[in-house]
Amino acid sequence: MAADSLPPPGLLVDPETLDTLAARDRVLHTAHDLFYRDGIRATGIDRVIAESRVTKVTFYRHFPSKNDLIIQYLQLRHERWMAWFTDALQRHGGAGGAGVSALTETLREWLASPNFRGCAFLNSVSEMGTSLPEAVTLTAQHKDEMRSAIQALLPSSPQRKRTAAALALAVDGAIVQTQFTGDSHEPLRQLKWLGERIVSS
């Protein structure tokens, strides 16, 4: 990986530098790590407050409810993940016939990273269901942007949008399978095999 390339999105909090952040960022970054690593429902507000080293008054000044914090967590995760994803796709070849290979190698970086815990958006919908409609909306927007980035890899054709949608569906399958097996080798192998056939059909 080039020195100036973005690493796969992982955890944000460095305990040694946490206190150098503004209070809102301390809370948000701490919540990001706890929600992604341990789950949204398993992480209570009191834990976020304690680990971000702020008072309850400070917390509620910036985040009136846990739902507000969840939404801002997902927005932050989206920005970080898409920045890495688009950077890595270009780094691995981008468009020009290397689309499936670029996609597979990009995902290999993330799925093999030590802090990988699946897709934050699929996880949030699985945990929250329809109790937080904003999370469902953000998940749909995130997946739309991921699909658009994949579409940009593909050669122009009448089926380009549909092909990108099929590849995005396969990507989600590889993410989920890696999450529950703990091994990305076979999901990525199957993704590449399937992707090459989708693109050539």
Results as ranks from 00 to 15, higher is better:
N115I: 07
R41G: 08
L107V: 08
K143R: 15
C119Q: 04
V136G: 05
D87I: 04
I71V: 15
D68C: 10
H92P: 03
H29L: 09
G93E: 01
D4Q: 14
G93R: 01
T58Q: 09
Q72N: 10
H185Y: 12
Q90E: 14
R160F: 08
A98D: 12
A164I: 02
A2L: 14
S184M: 10
H29C: 10
A140I: 11
R26W: 02
L89M: 05
T86Q: 07
A31W: 01
R53L: 10
H32G: 04
S65H: 06
D68A: 14
G94F: 03
I45S: 08
A112L: 12
T43W: 07
V27H: 03
E145A: 09
R26H: 05
G129W: 00
A42T: 12
D4E: 14
S148G: 10
A31R: 01
S113F: 06
Q177D: 12
Q90A: 12
D4K: 14
P133Y: 02
M82H: 10
M146F: 08
H142V: 02
A2R: 15
R41F: 12
E127M: 07
G10N: 05
W193Y: 15
S156G: 13
L191W: 02
T130D: 14
L191F: 06
A23P: 07
R26E: 04
Q159W: 13
Y36F: 13
W81H: 06
G93Q: 02
R41T: 13
V199P: 00
S184V: 08
A112G: 11
I175K: 06
L6F: 06
G118C: 05
V54H: 05
A174I: 03
L76E: 01
A3G: 11
A50T: 14
L34M: 11
E105A: 11
L122K: 11
L21F: 08
A120S: 09
D183M: 07
H29F: 13
K56P: 08
A23R: 10
Q177P: 03
E134F: 03
V136K: 05
A50L: 13
I45H: 07
A165F: 07
T58P: 03
E145G: 02
D46Y: 13
N123P: 05
A2D: 15
T17S: 15
L154A: 04
E127A: 05
V57G: 15
L154T: 00
A174G: 06
L28S: 01
H29T: 08
S126Y: 13
A2W: 12
A112S: 15
Q90M: 11
Q151F: 09
R41P: 03
M128C: 12
T137G: 11
I150P: 00
W84M: 00
G93I: 04
I40V: 12
M146C: 08
S131I: 10
S131Y: 10
V13N: 04
A31G: 09
T178V: 08
G97T: 10
T139A: 13
A50I: 10
L138K: 00
A152Y: 05
D183E: 11
I45P: 01
S5P: 06
T106I: 07
G10W: 01
R37E: 09
L28Y: 00
